[in-house]
Each structure stands twice: as structure tokens, then as C-alpha cells.
């Protein structure tokens, strides 16, 4: 335990005040946006049939909850994201480890990987549906296609970018390749790995929604698609807003995990 001096306390207080001010401003901007939206809708300046309004969105949410639909759609989307996130992490970690382990393999497959990575995966959508059927399988496959290559490339880049001095040191201790991997490559790249996981998560999010838009059975993507087909803009915008909220929460969870893993020194 350290006892803070008065100047130090003052410094911390100022810092905290600034942070609070930033958050207040952010909340204010959001509120302002919704209030203006509602105001314009009420005055009839914008057409609620095309642009909806906050009060209509709240009604839609209440309706969805009453029909006991909202949470099942939410649940489906979240589980699809989680499943594809976990699968893509495992596969990407495995493949990038092999690429790091064996330079020959990495040189052979690098051009394929960057090519696959830059291919617009939506183009594969119809094929995926034909191969995997209009089911959750297609959605997860779509999501993996979108997330996996960039994750492999990022993992591999950070592995081979590890400080050479650390590796030389371990080699001077007669370390095996396995030791180098677990004692240097992984711990020295903790930050990189976590930021890659963040990217991977948002990629999976994109992939799942894209899959749901294509396959359309359940989930937030389905709500958007369905809403647009029956021209229920309230439903579309509600689903989009929930989607935004969801991605914010997921991002926040990863940030917390990040803080737990990369402990302060």
C-alpha cells in the first residue's frame, strides 16, 4: 500500500474528472441525436415510414419482447458469433504456429493466404449455401471464411516479428523450438494476440450477419432481412441498433479480458 501525497491526489482527481467529462459528452451526443430524431419525427419533418423514430423503436422492442422473439434472435446471433469465433481462433492459432515452425511451409502458403484474404468473401455466399445448405452451418462457414485468413496472417506476422535477441538468448541456453515458442513467442506477443482476437471477433460478427442476411432463418440479420422484405423499417432500424449495442458489449468484454491477461507491471 502506498500513501499518496496531496499533489498526487490532486493529479488523480483531475485525471478522473477529465475522464468523466469525456464520458458525459459521449452520452450527451447520443441523447442529443435521439432527441433531435424524435423531434423531427414528431414535427413531421422526416417521414417515420422511411426513417422510423425513437418512440417507434421502443414500441417495436416491447412488441418483440412480448412475442418472446427478441431474445431468441439475439441468442442465436450471439451463439453463432461465439461458435465461429472459437473455431477460427483455434484453427488460426494452429495454422500460424505451423507457419512459424516451418519456414518452407510458410513460404509456400503465404501467397495463397494473402490471395484468399483479399478475395471478397460475399462472392462465396451462393456457393456456401449450395454446399452447406440454408442452415446455421452456412452462417458459420461464411463467418470463418471472412475471419480466418486475416487472423492467421496477423498471428503469423507477430510471431515472426518477435525480438531476435530473445530467441538468440534461448538458443544460447540450448532451448528446443518448443521452448522458444512457449517461453518467448507466446508471452512476448500477448498484446498482439489480443488485438488480433479483437479483429477476429469483429470479423466473425460481420460474417455471421452476412450469413444471416443470406440464409435468413433466425437472428438479428434475419430480422433486418425480414423487416426490409415486408417494408417494416421500424424493425430494420431496431435490429441494427441492437446489433450496434451488441458489438459494443462484446468489444467491452474483450477489453476487460485484455486488462486481466496483460496485468499491470
Amino acid at each position: 500500500m502506498s500513501i499518496y501525497s496531496n499533489e498526487h491526489k490532486e493529479y488523480l482527481k483531475k485525471k478522473r474528472r477529465k475522464t468523466i467529462f469525456v464520458h458525459m459528452t459521449q452520452i450527451f451526443i447520443i441523447l442529443f441525436f435521439f432527441i433531435i430524431w424524435e423531434y423531427l419525427a414528431n414535427k413531421g419533418i422526416i417521414n417515420t415510414f422511411l426513417y422510423s423514430s425513437p418512440s417507434l423503436i421502443i414500441k417495436t422492442i416491447i412488441n418483440l419482447i412480448k412475442q418472446n422473439n427478441l431474445f431468441s434472435h439475439l441468442f442465436i446471433t450471439i451463439s453463432e458469433v461465439m461458435i465461429s469465433f472459437i473455431i477460427s481462433c483455434i484453427i488460426a492459432l494452429f495454422i500460424s504456429t505451423i507457419l512459424w515452425w516451418n519456414e518452407f511451409i510458410s513460404r509456400v502458403f503465404n501467397p495463397f493466404l494473402s490471395n484468399l484474404n483479399s478475395l471478397p468473401k460475399v462472392a462465396l455466399g451462393p456457393l456456401i449455401i449450395i454446399w452447406a445448405g440454408a442452415s446455421i452451418k452456412s452462417i458459420i462457414l461464411m463467418s470463418l471464411m471472412i475471419s480466418i485468413f486475416v487472423t492467421i496472417i496477423n498471428f503469423h506476422q507477430s510471431f515472426i516479428g518477435t525480438d531476435k535477441n530473445y530467441i538468440t538468448l534461448l538458443k544460447s541456453m540450448n532451448a528446443k523450438k518448443k521452448d522458444i515458442f512457449f517461453k518467448v513467442i507466446i508471452p512476448s506477443n500477448k498484446e498482439n494476440i489480443i488485438s488480433t482476437l479483437k479483429i477476429n471477433l469483429s470479423m466473425n460478427f460481420i460474417g455471421v450477419i452476412m450469413g444471416e442476411l443470406l440464409v435468413s432463418k433466425k437472428g438479428l440479420g434475419y430480422l433486418i432481412m425480414y423487416g426490409s422484405q415486408v417494408f417494416n423499417i421500424n424493425l430494420v432500424i431496431t435490429a441494427i441498433l441492437i446489433l450496434g449495442l451488441l458489438s459494443f458489449i462484446l468489444y467491452y468484454i474483450i477489453t476487460i479480458i485484455n486488462k486481466l491477461i496483460v496485468k499491470k507491471r
Partner: peptide, 8 residues
């Protein structure tokens, strides 16, 4: 080694 390479 010439550099200390302590693991941070």
C-alpha cells in the same frame, strides 16, 4: 550476450 535481453 551483448544485449541483456531480459524478458520484460
Amino acid at each position: 550476450l551483448q544485449s541483456d535481453s531480459l524478458f520484460p
